[in-house]
Design a protein around this nucleic acid. Structure first.
Length: 890
RNA sequence: AGGGCCUUAGCUCAGUUGGUAGAGCGCCACCCUUACAAGGUGGAUGUCGUCGGUUCGACCCCGGCAGGCCCUACCA
């Protein structure tokens, strides 16, 4: 067996992944006797690139999927990619720009062709990146949101909702991105703090003296003013209400109205009302029946309603207007003002509230059910705290603007008859008008919001609206894993649409994980330059180390800070695993696996205490991991495996068995080899979901194995019951005492600076015969691991010039005694003892104080009191031993 | 403005029924002991943000304050 002394992920990962895939290990069966377990992958943008957030999201899912697959479930992880309307269209438009072209020049058809080209070119990139991470999806089922089947589902839902009047077309004030020339949903608007100015502008009363001063951050919108509003309680303006003002520059007449929305304290207490360009003003306009004057073109320039400012850009018009107001003396004051301004989350341009005709989904009726299933617990959020957030959001939900003025996406299945203006909404393209039979039909130019199709994802990917076996087996899915940033975008919509189309929830559990931040806690983003590229990290340390790092930090649903130091630490862990396997394989050189090797049990009499101990510890680890994974406590699970492998299996067990392995052939050696092979085998399976590549590689080289780590059974206390019975809790406790004895001797060596090369004598003074026997039985472990050449185990004896450390474990007690004559300067040892004595005295005084408190004795549970008493008496013994030892040095 | 989260070792973080603290990295000392120096052994370091309350007992439960973060909604 040739294994290099360093684990090299590059030698392993690619070939292992191919091998898994070629063997169909990730494939789910539509019909199976096994219980189903399914997860749908949140589809990443088809032309995107894997970032660390994906890596976290995917690793969580892959851990769950691999765990369930190994636990005997018919496991489906359904992958797909999203056409991501705005994102993809923007990317291609940027490309065109480099060639000096625009999409309008190209025309719709050519542009869409161009995007498809782009998709074909880059669409596989993210998939291959996912494979590098180890994602064990059933790739045969991969779906793209613009695939025929999905498109069919989208149309069906649209038509259905339209016929039930849950989709309607209406003119509303919506968020508009002038760069995209498209509507945006509220969620696609990012508010950013902007340092602007607050302009105080005087509006003069019509036909008389007097004026009202308003304050605004956007002076250019005065061109679209419909009124000036004041608070009805505001005495300053009481007499003005009902009078008319003359709009500066344009000279239009504006009524002064009273509306309680206006805050007296802000600015001047008078608000210019611009219904067509501000959401609040729109509301006021509705209340007072004001006219909505739109002064903007789709590209963000001013239109003919702006008079002489027609065709100007907003900023240009603003400057011009300010200048004119200054000249006319109507600009009274300009003060700096910091406020939040909506920006397009895609192009970063300033979003304009814009009056336009759009398609909407009436969400209230759908939201009702979506709230109920969460309230009733049919869908559970994990962590539970998101339930409240979700329900709050659902209760203030607005109608959903689903049309986008883009070219890339699902085109809205609505046609307009040029002859009779009839609107046809249909699943298949109509040939003639239903009403007048005219063939002059024009399809709606708009496409649907990407999230409209994403909302159908849990079942559109499974063949809906056709009735498929896949849906019967795998819908509803078990768990949805995602970050909290898209609970509304996506989770809520899947629940609404799933309930509406399938009459059943799309998933039972929503696991919300935190977002990845950099070491300083800032959001990772390409523009800030603090984003770590997971592919680079995989190149550096391997996918397993990256996965393990993410899982080890994935504690609660909290955001996690990414740390390279920890990444290195877990890279080292992978190397440790590798070397433990290397050593073990050497130790198993002549080992021949018996029949039913995984569960074969050696004669119990030939099992060493160390064998029983490691089996016991493995059982404890299996239990911890199972509990943790069932509760989505990934870090607990990962850390349990880490501690078991490194600090129990490697640090102690492998060291314990060296004398046995290097020794003569014997029953004990054979028993130990069997246990070693079995423990190693189980360790690899236990670690597999977290570190799939290295474990498979090692697993395939083990003398005990079945087919493949990826599909063999996950170690579980129930399934391992008989085998785990080899381990013994009481023997484990005894060995824990032995370990403490070894640690005590090492401690004496270390503190007294006795070089590791120097062999020393030691004496163990057991408290009773049982301890005597235990120590005797583990004599070789003790001498080897503490490098003692001459070990006596007997009670009492001379303590002169000796280091003494009392060891207590449960009700087992032994004094560890090391004669120091001729080895060291006694001052060091006196210091060591003094330190220990001070420490124990401190603890004792605390304990004594508590035990002498009557209220404690009266109120505390008996076992706590009893425990305290035992502790105190043990400490007294220990203190005495150490004080005596110290006395002998002076 | 409303809601939520966080504050534990130098750093990043665990700490699930309240019995006074742990890990990784870093640090110090000693070791190339034939699985591993990406390693081994030993060691140091915390009035658990602050003030108060409940309790025999609080990192843990309750309230005030300070600092940091996030979300939602926004004052024109």
């Amino acid at each position: 067996m040739q294994l290099s002394d360093r684990y090299n992920p590059k030698d392993v990962e690619e070939k292992t992944y191919l091998w898994w895939e070629n063997n169909g290990y990730f494939n789910a069966e539509d019909v199976s006797t096994k219980p189903p377990f399914s997860i749908i992958l949140p589809p990443p943008n088809v032309t995107g690139s894997l970032h660390l957030g994906h890596a976290l999201d995917h690793t969580i899912q892959d851990v769950l999927v691999r765990w369930k697959r190994m636990s005997g479930f018919n496991t489906l992880w359904l992958p797909g990619t999203d056409h991501a309307g705005i994102a993809t269209q923007s990317v291609v438009e940027r490309e065109l720009k480099k060639e000096g072209k625009t999409r309008k020049e190209l025309g719709r058809e050519a542009f869409v062709d161009r995007v498809w080209e782009w998709k074909h070119q880059y669409g596989d990139r993210i998939v291959s990146q996912m494979k590098r991470l180890g994602d064990s999806c059933d790739w045969r089922r991969q779906v793209f949101t613009l695939d025929e089947g999905v498109s069919k589902a989208v149309r069906k839902v649209f038509v259905d909702l339209y016929e039930r009047q849950l989709i309607y077309k209406g003119t509303r004030l919506i968020n508009w991105s002038p760069d995209l020339e498209s509507a945006l949903s509220d969620l696609e608007v990012e508010y950013k703090e902007v340092k602007g100015s607050l302009y105080h502008i005087r509006y003069d009363l019509e036909g008389g003296s007097g004026s009202v001063v308003i304050a605004t951050t956007r002076p250019e919108t005065l061109l679209a003013d419909a009124a000036v509003a004041v608070n009805p309680e505001d005495e300053r303006y009481e007499s003005m209400v009902g009078k008319k003002l003359k709009l500066p520059i344009l000279g239009r007449s504006l009524p002064i109205i009273a509306d309680s929305y206006v805050e007296k304290e802000f600015g001047t207490g008078a608000l210019k009302v611009t219904p067509a360009h501000d959401f609040n003003d729109y509301e006021i306009g509705q209340r007072h029946g004001l006219e909505s004057i739109n002064i903007l073109n789709k590209n963000g320039t001013l239109n003919e309603n702006a008079g002489k400012f027609n065709k100007m850009k907003v900023q240009e018009a603003r400057n011009q207007i300010i200048k004119e107001l200054e000249e006319s003396g109507q600009l009274l004051k300009v003060e700096p003002h910091v406020h939040q301004v909506g920006h397009c989350s895609r192009t970063n341009c300033v979003v304009e509230p814009f009056l336009s005709e759009q398609w909407f989904v009436k969400t209230a009726p759908l939201a009702e059910g979506a709230k109920r299933v969460v309230e009733s617990g049919t869908i559970r959020f994990e962590p539970e705290s998101w339930t409240k957030t979700y329900l709050h959001w659902m209760s203030i939900i607005q109608d959903w603007c689903i049309s986008r003025q883009l070219w890339w996406g699902h085109r809205i299945p609505a046609w307009y008859c040029s002859d009779c203006n009839h609107v046809i909404v249909a699943e298949s393209d109509p040939i003639e008008c239903e009403k007048c039979q005219s063939e002059n039909l024009k399809q709606d130019e708009d496409v649907l919001d990407t999230w409209f199709s994403s909302g159908l994802w849990p079942f559109s990917t499974m063949g809906w609206p056709d009735d498929t076996e896949t849906q019967k087996t795998f819908y509803p899915t078990n768990v949805l894993v995602t970050g909290h940033d898209i609970i509304f975008f996506w989770v809520a919509r899947m629940i609404m649409q799933g309930l509406d189309c399938k009459k059943d929830v799309p998933f039972r559990t929503v696991y919300i994980h935190g977002l990845i931040r950099d070491a300083q806690g800032k959001k990772m983003s390409k523009s800030t330059g603090n984003a770590e590229d997971p592919l680079e990290l995989i190149d550096e340390v391997g996918a397993d180390a990256l996965r393990f790092t993410l899982m080890a930090q994935m504690a609660s649903g909290r955001d996690l800070k990414f740390s390279r130091q920890r990444l290195e630490g877990y890279r080292n862990f992978m190397n440790k695993v590798w070397n433990a396997a290397r050593f073990s394989l050497g130790a198993l050189k002549n080992f021949e696996a018996p029949a039913d090797a995984e569960n074969a049990t050696p004669n119990k009499a030939s099992l060493s205490d160390a064998d029983q101990w490691i089996v016991h510890k493995l059982g404890e680890c299996e239990k911890t991991v199972d509990d943790a994974l069932n509760q989505y406590r990934f870090s607990d699970a990962a850390n349990a495996v880490y501690t078991f492998i490194w600090h129990e299996f490697c640090d102690w067990y492998l060291e314990f068995i060296k004398p046995v392995i290097y020794g003569e052939d014997s029953d004990e050696k054979q028993a130990t080899q069997l246990i070693l092979a079995q423990v190693l085998n189980r360790s690899m399976r236990l670690l597999h979901p977290f570190a799939p590549f290295i474990t498979e590689e090692i697993y395939q080289k083990l003398p005990i194995k079945k087919e493949a780590c990826v599909v063999d059974e996950y170690p579980h206390v129930k399934r391992d019951k008989d085998w785990l019975a080899l381990g013994s809790g009481s023997v484990a406790e005894e060995l824990d005492m032995v370990r403490e004895v070894i640690t005590a001797i090492r401690n004496i060596r270390g503190e007294n600076r006795i070089k590791p090369g120097v062999q020393i004598k030691a004496r163990l003074s057991p408290a009773d015969d049982r301890v005597q026997k235990i120590l005797g039985g583990n004599r070789s472990f003790i001498t080897t691991l503490s490098k003692v050449s001459d070990l006596t185990i007997e009670q009492g004896g001379d303590l002169a010039k000796c280091a003494v450390t009392p060891v207590r474990a449960g009700n087992l007690a032994v004094d560890v005694i090391v004669p120091l004559e001729g080895l060291v300067d006694f001052e060091e040892e006196k210091k060591r003892l003094t330190k220990s004595i001070e420490k124990i005295e401190k603890e004792m005084s605390r304990l004594e104080k508590r035990l002498s408190n009557e209220n404690f004795l009266k109120n505390a549970p008996d076992d706590i009191v009893e425990q305290g008493k035992i502790q105190l008496s043990e400490m007294k013994d220990q203190l005495k031993s150490m004080q005596e030892a110290r006395a002998r040095f002076s």
